[in-house]
Simulated scan of single mutants.
Amino acid sequence: MLIIANYHYLREDFSAPFPSIYGVTPAQFENQLKKLSKFGKFISQDELLEKPEKIEADNYFLITFDDGLKEQYELAKPILDKLGIPYIFFINTANFANQEVSLVHKVHLLRSKIAPEKLLGQIENKSLNSEEKKAAIVHYNYDSPENAILKYILNFKFNHIEQENFIEPIFDELFEEANLVKDLYFSDAMLLELAKKNVLGSHSHSHRPLGLLSKSEAEEELRFTQEFFRKRFGTTARSISYPYGSFNACEGITSLVKKAGFQIGFSMERAANESLDTDRLLLSRFDCNDLPGGKNDLFNGKNPFESAPIRKWNSYENSTINK
C-alpha cells in the first residue's frame, strides 16, 4: 500500500497580522518523518515508476511538496537527505519561465496582511449557498470559516480572469513582484540540481485548476509546463500534482495528462493507494497534517496503513475527457 504525504510551507515562524499560511516548522517536519518511519518504508519517484508492484507487497510512504518554494529546499531537503528519505518537488513552471508569482501565493500574501472579512466585503456578486459554504469549510479544514469561504470563492467561483482582476490591483499596492519571485521560489541552480536527481515534477504551468478549464486551456497549461521541462532540463516531467487537488480540479483530465506525456498524477483525495494498476494519473494524497505527527492526525497516532480509506476518485473520473 502507498500513502502519500503532501507539504507546502516550512518555516521557523508563521506569525502574521492575519494567519493565512499553515505549514510545519523544521522540527515538526523531522519529528513527523521519524513517526512515519515506524509504520512504513519510503519510496522514490524512480522506484514508483520502475517497480510499482512494490507497493502491493509492502507499506510505503511517498513524500511530496507542491509549489517549488525555496524554503522547501533550504529547510526540508537537508532533513530528508540526513534521514535518507526520497521526495518529489512539484513546480509551477510559470514562476521560472515568466518570473511571476503564482496567483495562489499572491492570495496567501494578501490574506496575511488583510482581514478576510475586509476582502470578502470587496467581492461583488459571488456569494455561496449553504451547501457551498459547507463544502468550503470541509475542503479548507485548516482555515477559519471566513478564510475558507474567501478561498472557495476565489478558487472555485471566480474564473482565472476574475480572480486576477480582483487580486492584482490590491497585491501591487503592497508588494514588489520581482523581489518576491527571487525570495519565494527555487533558484536556477536548485532547479538544475533537483532535475538531475530526478526529483522534480510539474504542478502545471500557472497553478490553475485543470479540471475547471476548457479542454484547450488545460492542453495549453500541460503543453507549456512540458515545454519548460524539455527546454530547461532536456526531458519532460514524468509526474504532475494537480493544482488545488479537489475532485473538481482533477475531474475529466487524465486523458489530456496522459497525452501530454505524464506517467503519474497526484490529487488531494485523502486516501491510500492499494495499487497503480488501475489508474496512475489519479493517485491520492494526504495533507501532512492529516497523518501521524500532524496537527490534525486522522489516525490518532496509530498505523495509517491499517485504517486509511482507499482511493475512489479514479473510479468516478474513469479517465473521461475534459469538457
Rank of each mutant, 00 (worst) to 15 (best):
residue 201 G to S: 00
residue 13 D to V: 01
residue 190 M to V: 14
residue 292 P to N: 12
residue 203 H to W: 09
residue 248 N to Q: 15
residue 49 L to F: 09
residue 219 E to V: 14
residue 304 P to L: 10
residue 188 D to G: 01
residue 312 K to W: 13
residue 74 E to S: 11
residue 68 G to K: 08
residue 127 S to E: 09
residue 264 I to W: 02
residue 190 M to Q: 15
residue 219 E to M: 14
residue 28 Q to S: 00
residue 284 S to P: 11
residue 162 E to L: 02
residue 258 K to Y: 13
residue 164 E to K: 14
residue 60 Y to I: 13
residue 249 A to L: 06
residue 86 P to N: 05
residue 121 G to K: 02
residue 207 H to A: 09
residue 81 D to P: 05
residue 179 N to H: 09
residue 278 T to R: 15
residue 28 Q to K: 07
residue 280 R to W: 04
residue 257 V to Y: 00
residue 187 S to D: 06
residue 252 G to K: 02
residue 226 Q to W: 08
residue 146 E to R: 02
residue 17 P to C: 10
residue 240 I to H: 02
residue 306 E to R: 00
residue 243 P to C: 10
residue 141 N to T: 07
residue 298 L to M: 10
residue 292 P to G: 14
residue 26 P to L: 08
residue 52 P to E: 09
residue 177 E to D: 06
residue 255 S to V: 04
residue 235 T to G: 11
residue 96 F to I: 09
residue 34 K to S: 06
residue 286 F to I: 07
residue 7 Y to R: 10
residue 1 M to D: 14
residue 47 E to Y: 05
residue 66 D to T: 03
residue 204 S to D: 00
residue 53 E to K: 13
residue 12 E to F: 10
residue 107 V to Y: 07
residue 3 I to E: 12
residue 270 R to N: 03
residue 322 N to Y: 06
residue 47 E to W: 09
residue 147 N to I: 02
residue 97 A to P: 10
residue 208 R to M: 14
residue 184 L to H: 09
residue 109 L to K: 02
residue 199 V to Q: 05
residue 323 K to V: 13
residue 66 D to N: 05
residue 11 R to K: 05
residue 26 P to W: 01
residue 165 N to P: 02
residue 193 E to Y: 10
residue 258 K to C: 00
residue 308 A to D: 00
residue 24 V to N: 13
residue 258 K to T: 02
residue 136 A to I: 11
residue 207 H to W: 12
residue 142 Y to H: 07
residue 309 P to Q: 07
residue 314 N to G: 09
residue 160 H to G: 11
residue 266 F to D: 01
residue 295 K to L: 03
residue 33 L to E: 07
residue 245 G to D: 00
residue 61 F to K: 05
residue 21 I to W: 14
residue 59 N to V: 09
residue 282 L to A: 12
residue 145 P to C: 00
residue 321 I to S: 14
residue 72 Q to H: 08
residue 215 K to I: 04
residue 130 S to E: 04
residue 95 N to W: 00
residue 94 A to T: 05
residue 162 E to Y: 11
residue 156 F to M: 04
residue 272 A to Q: 09
residue 90 F to S: 13
residue 65 F to T: 05
residue 209 P to M: 08
residue 56 E to F: 13
residue 265 G to P: 03
residue 63 I to F: 11
residue 215 K to M: 01
residue 139 H to N: 01
residue 35 K to W: 06
residue 19 P to V: 12
residue 62 L to N: 08
residue 35 K to P: 11
residue 174 L to K: 10
residue 107 V to N: 05
residue 154 L to H: 04
residue 95 N to A: 15
residue 135 A to P: 01
residue 159 N to D: 03
residue 140 Y to V: 00
residue 116 P to F: 10
residue 252 G to N: 06
residue 208 R to A: 15
residue 315 S to M: 14
residue 176 E to A: 12
residue 304 P to D: 13
residue 260 A to V: 09
residue 201 G to C: 10
residue 301 G to L: 11
residue 229 F to L: 04
residue 269 E to L: 06
residue 125 N to C: 01
residue 277 D to F: 15
residue 55 I to C: 12
residue 154 L to E: 10
residue 75 L to F: 12
residue 74 E to Y: 07
residue 198 N to S: 11
residue 157 K to S: 14
residue 188 D to V: 03
residue 46 D to E: 15
residue 51 K to L: 13
residue 51 K to Q: 14
residue 45 Q to H: 08
residue 194 L to I: 09
residue 79 I to P: 06
residue 267 S to M: 03
residue 291 L to P: 05
residue 99 Q to R: 11
residue 232 R to C: 01
residue 139 H to V: 00
